[in-house]
C-alpha cells in the first residue's frame, strides 16, 4: 500500500472515531508525539511520588497515613501502566527513564515545588489531582487505544485522590486556628502552579493544534484551565478559604470566572530546571536507580542461573 493510501486510511479512522492500535500504521510524528506525551505523563506519576512521599512518615493519624501510602502506590501503578502503553509504541521503558534522568524528557513542573506542611497533602490532592483530572478525563477518548484504556483506570483513581485531598483541606479549614492557617497557606502556594499545569496559553502552545487534529487532545489548554477554575473556586469558598488572586471574580455575562495573569516567566523557569526542587527530584530518581543496580543485576543473574538449570534438565 502506498504511503498516501496508508495516510488516508489513518485519517479516515480518526474521522470515524476508530481507535488507532499498536499494530496499525501511523505517521511517524503521531508516534513521536504520543511517546513524548505518554512518557511525560508516566514520569510525572513517578516523580510525583516524591513530594507526597515526603509526608508519609509524618502523617498525623493512622487513617491518613494509610490513605496517603495507598495514594502514592496508585501513582506508582499509573506510572507502570503508562510506561506499558508507551512501550506498545516501540519505546523501551529503560530508554524513557534514561531520558528523564538526563533532563531530556520532561515531567509535570508542579512536582518541582516543595511540600512544606501537612496541608500540602490536602492541596495537592484537591488542586493538583483536580487539575490532572481536568486534563485527563478527555484523554479517555484519545485516539490511541492503549493510552485511552490506561486513562480510564487512571481517572477513576485520580478522582478518588481528589476527594481525599479536598477532605483533608476541609478538616483543616474547620479545625484549630493553626490548622486553618496551614490550609490557607497551602492554597496560597499551590493555586498558581496548579493553573500552570494546563500548559502555556493557546496562542503560545506549540503542540496543541496538531494534537487536536490527531484527536490526541480534545480541548485546548485555556479551555481546560477555565473549566478547572470554574469548578474549583466554589469548592474553596465553601470551606471558607480565600484564593490568592485579587482579580478573581464571577463574570455573569460570560458565565465563567475571570482570573488574574499567570506568571509565565516562573513557569518557563521551572521547566528549564530552575524550580525549587528540580535538582533534588532528579537526584532522588537517579539515586534510586544507582542504589538498586546491584539488586537488579542479582535478580537477572539468578534468573539466568535458573534458566540454565532447567535447560540442562530438559537436555
Amino acid at each position: 500500500m502506498s504511503e498516501e493510501q496508508l495516510q488516508r486510511d489513518f485519517q479516515s479512522k480518526l474521522d470515524a472515531e476508530i481507535r488507532i492500535e499498536p499494530k496499525d500504521w501511523m505517521p511517524d510524528d503521531y508516534r513521536k508525539t504520543l511517546i513524548r506525551q505518554i512518557s511525560q505523563h508516566a514520569h510525572s506519576e513517578i516523580v510525583g511520588m516524591l513530594p507526597e512521599g515526603n509526608w508519609i512518615t509524618r502523617a498525623p493519624s493512622l487513617r491518613r497515613k494509610v490513605a496517603l501510602i495507598a495514594k502514592v502506590q496508585d501513582e506508582a501503578g499509573h506510572g507502570l501502566y503508562l510506561y506499558s502503553a508507551m512501550e506498545t509504541l516501540g519505546e523501551p521503558r529503560s530508554k524513557a527513564i534514561d531520558d528523564l534522568h538526563s533532563g531530556k524528557a520532561k515531567y509535570s513542573s508542579i512536582f518541582n515545588y516543595p511540600t512544606l506542611t501537612w496541608a500540602d497533602m490536602g492541596a495537592i490532592g484537591w488542586l493538583v489531582d483536580g487539575a490532572a483530572i481536568q486534563n485527563q478525563v478527555p484523554l479517555c477518548r484519545t485516539s490511541y487505544g492503549p493510552y485511552a484504556r490506561a486513562m480510564v483506570r487512571v481517572c477513576k483513581e485520580e478522582s478518588f485522590h481528589q476527594r481525599q485531598g479536598y477532605e483533608i483541606m476541609m478538616e483543616l479549614a474547620k479545625g484549630t486556628p493553626a490548622q486553618k492557617a496551614m490550609a490557607q497557606d497551602a492554597l496560597n502556594r499551590w493555586w498558581w502552579p496548579s493553573l500552570m499545569m494546563f500548559g502555556p496559553p493557546d496562542k503560545d502552545s506549540k503542540h496543541t493544534a496538531q494534537s487536536m487534529a490527531w484527536k490526541i487532545k480534545r480541548h485546548t489548554n485555556d479551555e481546560l484551565r477555565q473549566a478547572f477554575v470554574d469548578k474549583t473556586v466554589p469548592q474553596g469558598e465553601f470551606i471558607g478559604l480565600t484564593f490568592p488572586d485579587k482579580d478573581l471574580k464571577w463574570n455573569e455575562e460570560k458565565g465563567h470566572y475571570d482570573f488574574g495573569d499567570i506568571n509565565w516567566d516562573e513557569f518557563y523557569n521551572v521547566i528549564k530546571g530552575n524550580g525549587p526542587c528540580n535538582k533534588e527530584r532528579i537526584k532522588a530518581r537517579r539515586a534510586a536507580k544507582e542504589n538498586g543496580a546491584w539488586v537488579r543485576d542479582a535478580a537477572a543473574a539468578y534468573a539466568k542461573k535458573k534458566q540454565n538449570k532447567s535447560t540442562e534438565k530438559a537436555a
Binding site: I46, M49, L50, I56, I69, G77, G292, A293, V295, R296
Partner: peptide, 15 residues
C-alpha cells in the same frame, strides 16, 4: 518499609 516509597530498586519493587 514506607520509608522506601519512591526509592525502591525497581518500580515493581516500590509497589
Amino acid at each position: 518499609m514506607s520509608e522506601w516509597c519512591g526509592h525502591g530498586p525497581e518500580l515493581e519493587e516500590d509497589i
